[in-house]
C-alpha cells in the first residue's frame, strides 16, 4: 500500500524548546495509526505542523506525493486533511447542522454573490449540502439534534459532531486528537467502534493521538511513540507493548500504573 502521509525529519522549536525533533513518520493509505507519548511529548504540535497551523523549522511533510509543509491551514484542508481538537472546538453559537455545513466549505464552489439572486447553481448546491449535512448527522447518530446550538449538546454528542464536521470536507486523512478524552468506558468503547467503522465504511485513513491504551492497542495497525519531541519507538501494538524504551518513558516518570496510565 502507498503512503498517504510522510513526514520526513520534521523539527519544530519554540524559542529554545524543541517540541518536535527530527521526526519521521509514514502513514499507509487506509490505515489506522496512533501517536502516543507522555504529556508534552509534542503530539499535538505535530498535528499542528501537519495542518499548517505551525510552520515547521526543518523537514518536509508530504501528503499524496505533494509537499504541504508551511502551506496555509485552509489550503491544507482543501487538499484533504481534516482534524478534531483535544479540547473540543466547535462553533458553539451555531447549530449542529450549521457546524457541519461550515465543514463542507471546501467542497462548495459557487461564487459568494450568487446567493443574492439565488442562482440555480447556488440553490442546487445548498440543497445538496444540506442533504449531505443531514446524512452526516445521521451517520454520527445525532439525527434530530441538528437545530440545537452546538454548545447545548451533551459532551459525547459534541465529540461526534466535531468528527462529523471534520468528515464534511470529505478528507482523505482524518487527524483525531484524543477522541475519547473525558469519556467513560462505555462511551469509549462506542467511539472505538465508530472510528473503526469510519475507516471501513468511508475508506478514510485515520491518525489519532490517544492516551487510552485500550483504544490505541485495540484499533491501531501502527503505533508511534513520541517522547520529548523525538520518536522512540514504532511498530505494531504488540511490539510497542514489549518495547523497553517505551516502558521506560512511561514508567520512568513514576507513572506507576504503567502502560495503562492515561492523562486522566
Amino acid at each position: 500500500m502507498a503512503n498517504i502521509l510522510t513526514a520526513r525529519n520534521v523539527t519544530k522549536t519554540f524559542g529554545g524548546l524543541v517540541a518536535v525533533n527530527d521526526f519521521t513518520l509514514d502513514i499507509a493509505e487506509n490505515s489506522i495509526s496512533s501517536v502516543i507519548g507522555p504529556n508534552g511529548a509534542g503530539k499535538t504540535t505535530f498535528f499542528n505542523c501537519v495542518t499548517g497551523f505551525y510552520k515547521v523549522d526543518e523537514g518536509e511533510i508530504i501528503f499524496n506525493s505533494e509537499q504541504i509543509q508551511n502551506r496555509r491551514t485552509d489550503v491544507v484542508t482543501r487538499k484533504g486533511i481534516s482534524r478534531t481538537y483535544q479540547n473540543i472546538r466547535l462553533f458553539s453559537n451555531m447549530s449542529a447542522i450549521e457546524n457541519i455545513l461550515v465543514g463542507q466549505h471546501p467542497r462548495l464552489k459557487t461564487f459568494w454573490a450568487e446567493a443574492v439572486w439565488k442562482s440555480k447553481r447556488f440553490r442546487n448546491e445548498e440543497l445538496t449540502a444540506l442533504e449531505e449535512a443531514r446524512r452526516l448527522l445521521r451517520f454520527v447518530g445525532l439525527q434530530g439534534m441538528g437545530d440545537t446550538l452546538a454548545r447545548n449538546l451533551p459532551y459525547g454528542a459534541q465529540r461526534r459532531l466535531e468528527i462529523a464536521r471534520a468528515l464534511a470536507s470529505l478528507p482523505k486523512l482524518l487527524l483525531l486528537d484524543e477522541p475519547t478524552a473525558g469519556m467513560n468506558p462505555n462511551e469509549t468503547g462506542e467511539m472505538t467502534r465508530f472510528i473503526q467503522h469510519l475507516r471501513d465504511e468511508l475508506g478514510i485513513t485515520i491518525l489519532l493521538i490517544e492516551h487510552d491504551m485500550r483504544v490505541v492497542m485495540g484499533i491501531s495497525e501502527q503505533v508511534t511513540v513520541l517522547d520529548y519531541g523525538s520518536k522512540i519507538a514504532e511498530g505494531s501494538p504488540k511490539e510497542i507493548q514489549s518495547n523497553p524504551r517505551v516502558i521506560e518513558a512511561y514508567l520512568g516518570r513514576g507513572a506507576a500504573s504503567g502502560l495503562k496510565a492515561g492523562k486522566r
Binding site: T51, F53, R72, T73, D74, T77, R78, S82, R83, Y85, R89, F91, S92, N93, M94, E98, V102, G103, H105, P106, R165, S169
Partner: peptide, 16 residues
C-alpha cells in the same frame, strides 16, 4: 459566523 466563533478552526475548515 464560523470566523467570529473561532478563527483558527474556521481556517482549519478550509476557510480563507
Amino acid at each position: 459566523m464560523a470566523m467570529r466563533e473561532d478563527e483558527d478552526v474556521a481556517e482549519a475548515m478550509g476557510i480563507n
